[in-house]
Design a protein around this nucleic acid. Sequence first.
RNA 1: CGCGGUGUAGCUCAACGGCCAGAGCACUCGAUUGAUAAUCGAGCGAUGUCGGUUCAAUUCCUUCCACCGCGACCA
Length: 1008
Amino acid sequence: MVLTWQSCYYFAFDTRPIMSTEAPALDLKKTINLPKTKFAQKANLPQTEPARLKKWADMKLYEQIQAARAGAPKFILHDGPPYANADIHLGTALNKILKDLIVKSRTMLGFDTPYVPGYDCHGLPIELHVERKLGEKKKDMPPLSIRRACREFAANALKRQTRDFQRLGIFGEWDNPYITMSDHYEAETARLFARFVERGFVYKGARPVYWCIHDQTALAEAEVEYHQHASPSVYVKFPLKSDPALIDPALAGRRVFALIWTTTPWTLPANLGIAVHPDFDYVAIESGGEVYIIAAELIDVVAARCGLAEPKVLARFPGSKLDRLEAQHPWIDRPSLFMVGEHVTLGGEADAETELDVSEAREKSATNKAGTGLVHTAPGHGHDDFVIGKKYGLEIYCPVDNAGRFTNEVEYFAGLSIFEANPKIVDFMRERGVLLFSENYDHRYPHCWRCKNPVIFRATPQWFISMDHAGNELTEKDEDDRDRSNFTSNFVGGELLDEQSLRVMSVREVDDRVKWIPAWGRDRMRNMLSGRPDWCVSRQRVWGVPIPAFYCAKCNHVIAEPNVIRHVADIFEKESADAWFKREATDLLPENFKCGECGATEFTKETDILDVWFDSGSSSIAVLEARDNLRWPADVYIEGGDQFRGWFNSSLMVGLAVHDRAPYEAVLCHGWTLDAQGKAMHKSLGNAVSPDEVIPKLGAEVLRLWCVSSNYMEDMRCSDEILQRVADGYRKLRNTARFALGNLDGFDPAQDTVSDHALLEIDQWALAELNSIVVAVREAFEAYDFHDVYQTLHQFCTVTLSARYFDIIKDRLYTFAPRNQARRSAQTALYRIADALARMMAPILVFTSDEIWENLPASSEALPVVHMAEFPKPADEDRADLLTKWAHLFGYRDAVLAKLEEARVAKTIGSSLEARVEISAGRHAYEVLNNHRDDLRYIFIVSEVELSEPHAEMDSEALEITVIRAHGQKCDRCWNYSTRVGESSKYPTVCERCVAALEEIEASDRLS
RNA sequence: CGCGGUGUAGCUCAACGGCCAGAGCACUCGAUUGAUAAUCGAGCGAUGUCGGUUCAAUUCCUUCCACCGCGACCA
């Protein structure tokens, strides 16, 4: 039987004898069941959160949760290690909170979900920071001392980050994180390098890097700064070697020159080619008896500069026509190969190598055009030259030594420093008649940040991981320490694809196996992988894992053998990678090791270290495989979009090298943090929101709520206003929970629960609504749609509960006798709602949900902390019919509320209880309303409702609503109006319902 | 410059190509004073831009603009 308000009232009224004369009248106000709870309205989060964290730490909550989930199916989120060089910022906090949301929600879905946080500790930023602190001292310090300082710095940053992450309410193995500078991790990193070598992915080659000839060191991009610098700008003639008729019959038999422009004459001895754009128009122009090839668009500019009188166009052709033809070097007996490349521009950005701001460079091009559209290409001295040179199989030729002097093979200029040589080369070319024009050219040029001297681009030996080939041989080197073997194409062109290559394998994994969330991640990753060059893994630095290679002191043979590397790794395992710097080469090599080439027993150590991306990329193997409670591969990785090229990529490479598959089943990508205007947050712009500022003001809880208040898969804005809105949202959730808790005072679930079928229909409806959001929330958590979770919960609290359900049941909760079955019915629903809300909120509002949990009447499960519980389970029964019916009722209610508002504006009523509502309804509407005839006054929160039969002509769903003042008197106790106020002599100021309730209360008091 | 993403109300989000673009918060007004530094109701308020496809576009295509990330910026 479904109870109604009326039946409960009569039930009470009929079975309790009236004994109005026996006892003195009760204080009416005290008979109202007002909400009562220890769950404070004001959260005081900044104060209460740390106390709760301490409680959890003391009880070893994380360990308890893990123990409780032992044996359950595992779910592994693998943590991408944040870089341990600074305190956390909003982006780091977002990242970690999202991970925590995944871990907590999977835990509550029943999975065993361990979380091992990690820290990325090696690398340039830390080394630079330490260098800056050390200042001049650094120069005299041995690598070991610098490494010690770096280690201390990273350890300190890591400690501070850990403290801040814990403050955010993130659960995990904080006492046992993975640290890339730990002995084990360093050893494992070296072992993984051995694995790459074993599979033939590693080769040693040359690549142009910034090089300071004063300090004789390679520089990272971060170490160069830009200053004005005057360079000689020269226009140089390259005689065409191929038959000019191949370009155009009109040129048959003519003496033709390709005209190039450069601001670095010293790179001309290394010239091996000329690049043109395949789609630009080029022309052969005749002037003074000679023919020059230049870009069509630049005829006027070049002619003016070079003093070419009356240029006459002999032929016009696209750049692609020149592809693979040859010119002759202007003074060396060597061909210069024509190549086509998209990087060629029509001048003006000549100094763009030094520009960080592209728009600035573009503007310059309008006013300061220079160039010929033909690009002098020296693969050993420029990045693009290097790339296109590789493509065309050119040597990475760099006849310049560490001190910036030409090597012996450079005729005329050997031994000269390149800056001294510049003017000499210009004069030399003028004498030879190959120079058309020269001038001084002011432009921004990279300089060494330390010694302030101009730097050069110079190819130096580097270690690479090949993207396109497996089974590579380590490179042989010639007497000048140059790479001679890797001159073949390593570009994807459709042909020559090696099925075992990292590129092919990685694209296959990205396409076929990994799930990308959002879906565009797949395209982005594929694009990145198919276009990227070989991975340069060497760095000329000290703070990292050394590349465990040796060189024979006698024959210079490279020793990078898997067994030798593993031998070194075993030493790292015990002594950390510092051993590389502490020990002599022979102490690092296996006993009695001899050079495989010449049998010598003296060796030198490689001085380069591994790229930090290699470190962090190693984590899936070094951590997931190494720890008993984890497993490889991970179910999910989640990082910001910058990690496609970073950790997602390097982890994939390592996974492929070790197991031929991706280390993750799914990859989620979260957005960047922006300010209120949608600008990226930067400390230097002063628009960054810091967790350090938010937490003392609003609490970590509000920051966590911010993470789900918006869609993390896109960029996330944050500002004071946004946080204020989030805090408002928080208060709504909190107050909703508080109302439920307050009305559960005196409710014992074990004793007082009303069985499902006996619940009032509206209470059944509320639970059906609850069930539908339980389903929605579980699904949203499973799909990582945390934003949906929040929206769903918030909507439920504001609309379903606060504006409707709670408002309606207040009368019953407050005015009915405490133990009345109708009141117990509402409490049963409230209890289940509060319990479910606490569970569903738990991953997000980690503190508040537990506070709700604590203030809930004891549950049968009796778990001390909500985080040990699971999400509510969806009900078996489908109540779609009930939901539909009540959707209609609430539609009618909205119509009534609108009429009440009109009456309020007209001053007919104030409180809605002052109203009597008269309704004529169409056929269907009448049917629905009539079924709840006696409940309508409570649903509408008015004192009286009169429902009349439908007119025949009315639309089936139509309502005619009239609002007038309620009849009778206002009841002193329940504030409803009734014509029967005064009937009781004992309680002359109350209505018939309250008389019954008071009788019930008195009877109950006597019994207890 | 290349690749990718985003653009709906002051804020955070909705809308199988289809009813008058829908919520919550904020703001204004009103009610209540028994969720009270609360609660209830009402009002206000929006598709970045130029075109196109379509009977119909927030949705599909295109131009431009703005913003975000990654990469490139060479002689």
